[in-house]
């Protein structure tokens, strides 16, 4: 199989999916019961996981898997439990986005040792929100800009082919 071709396809689709996840997270920020946004993030994380696993991008597959699992729980519950949980989702998104960028740039994939564990951890309902102590998350505008930087997809780098 011509894996360079699949690397390009991965970058195209993962970038689109990340853009959709970013928009859905912003929707969830406004309305934490937005079932369409919840479902979309679940499906996009699942899709990125499958593609990444096919290309042996194990750290991307791992974080996507955790994000997918977390979204499955949120889907079952019908809502994001708290702003703290939403911040975790942003953190997972950021981690995947950074790794996809590393693939695009031909860099080695560096696993984020914390993120898989963080995404798997239970989040206690928090009310009221303590913004000062909430986990740090991406600035949505900054995240959007990073995504724009990912396109157009560059030509495959020989060092990234398997």
């Amino acid at each position: 199989m011509d894996m360079a071709k699949y690397r390009v396809l991965f970058l195209e689709e993962a970038t689109e999916h990340l853009s959709e996840i970013s928009s859905a997270l912003l929707d969830l920020e406004k309305e934490m019961t937005n079932s369409e946004a919840i479902d979309l993030i679940f499906r996009m994380a699942h899709s990125i996981k499958g593609m990444a696993a096919s290309l042996d991008y194990v750290p991307i597959a791992e974080v996507s898997h955790r994000l997918e699992d977390r979204m499955q729980g949120i889907r079952a519950a019908g809502c994001v439990s708290s702003p703290a949980e939403l911040a975790l989702l942003f953190r997972g998104f950021e981690s995947i986005e950074a790794m996809v960028r590393a693939v695009r740039d031909g860099q080695d994939l560096v696993p984020d040792p914390e993120i898989a564990e963080i995404l798997s951890a239970p989040v206690a309902p928090v009310a009221p929100v303590d913004a000062a102590n909430a986990p740090e998350r991406a600035n949505p505008q900054e995240a959007k800009k990073k995504l724009q930087d990912l396109t157009p997809v560059l030509e495959p780098s020989p060092s990234q082919t398997h």
Binding site: K5, Y6, M51
Partner: peptide, 13 residues
């Protein structure tokens, strides 16, 4: 499959 990536991979196989 909703992923073009996966459709192409199955097609090739």
């Amino acid at each position: 499959d909703d992923a073009s990536f996966m459709r192409q991979m199955i097609r090739e196989i």
